[in-house]
Amino acid sequence: MAKVAFLGLGVMGFPMAGHLAARGHAVTVWNRTAAKAEAWVGQHSGQRAATAAEAASGADFVLACVGNDDDLRQVCLGATGAFAGMAPGAIFVDHTTVSAQVTRELSALAAEKGLGFVDAPVSGGQAGAENGVLSVMCGGSAADYAAAEPVIAAYARICRRLGESGAGQLAKMCNQIAIAGLVQGLAESLHFAEKAGLEAGALVEVISQGAAGSWQMANRAQTMAENRFDFGFAVDWMRKDLGICLATANETGASLPVTALVDQFYKDVQKLGGGRWDTSSLIARVRALG
């Protein structure tokens, strides 16, 4: 068992930190809004800290799940940041979805301080975090990954190293690119079924067993049919992620025409007031068009 700090207790981080405590790790949590850290301590075995540096002090592993590039920099750097509290040999594991650029920047700064760094964005949403079955895609040195993987296993169905620093974030971009097209296709399929007079449940039961089947269909088709969009991963966050994908595509020369189009469709959902709806809400836009 390890001494672990967890920074960021949102819809993902709160249950992820809980799984670490349930596995017997000694967990200290920190959150920008202290009330969330207090709530976590009230439900789990562990303690809270006043700053990220205090939480990281003496920890073998410091794990973070925050919002974006700027949030991650703030959590890592400065007198109250995690790097200030970490001892040489400790490993920072970042579960935030951020750019590969900031990952490489912070990984280099960590190395200067004798710290390990693993970028480890996750997929599986709020339900995956709560049930401890996330997919975790990692970048970093083989040694840092090997040390961190048994800790990450507390909330992972699968965890893999894809390469050096930044590879995990690039893999997460691939994940979001794939999801964008799938959800739009599913939204159009269900809308077509509605217009054609087919019952959504019976339709999905049949086509999900064939080549059209996907995680999105199995987990979101029924709720999309019922106009329920409250499953944690918000459109606002998806647009942040797709922005990272499109910016990186410009740098690498990759062509992402469908991703760029679906990003604009999510912009339309925001205009409908759905910024906090989950990503399956693309069907609301299709319905609004008639």
Rank of each mutant, 00 (worst) to 15 (best):
G124H: 03
A153L: 08
L186A: 02
G18T: 00
G243N: 10
M224N: 05
I91Y: 07
A35T: 12
T248P: 02
R276L: 07
D69W: 04
G114V: 05
E130I: 15
D71N: 14
R285I: 06
H19S: 05
D268T: 14
I158T: 14
A249G: 06
R157I: 00
G78V: 11
L198Y: 09
P121Y: 06
F92N: 00
E205K: 13
W237P: 08
Q270M: 11
R161S: 00
E205N: 15
E251A: 15
A218G: 13
K3Q: 13
A143N: 02
D119Y: 01
M86W: 04
A193K: 10
E199Q: 13
V27T: 05
D60T: 03
E164Q: 11
A142E: 13
L77K: 05
P121I: 07
R73A: 15
M173F: 09
G168W: 02
G10A: 11
G139C: 01
A34G: 13
P257M: 09
A212L: 11
T248Y: 12
G114P: 02
L77G: 06
F192C: 14
R285M: 10
V29I: 03
M12T: 07
W215Y: 15
A154F: 02
K195L: 15
G128W: 02
W30K: 00
G273W: 07
F192A: 14
S107D: 13
D144T: 03
L20G: 00
A247Y: 10
F6L: 03
F192V: 13
E199K: 13
Y155A: 09
V122G: 06
Q209R: 15
R32N: 11
L246D: 01
T51G: 04
N31P: 03
L162S: 07
A284M: 05
A100L: 08
G210H: 04
A39V: 05
Q43I: 10
V102L: 04
G140K: 08
A187G: 06
I244C: 10
R239E: 10
N31R: 04
L203V: 08
T51H: 01
I179D: 05
E54D: 15
L182Q: 13
A221H: 00
V133I: 08
A171T: 12
V98E: 04
N175P: 01
D60R: 02
Q222A: 15
E226R: 15
F192L: 15
V133S: 08
G201N: 14
S214V: 05
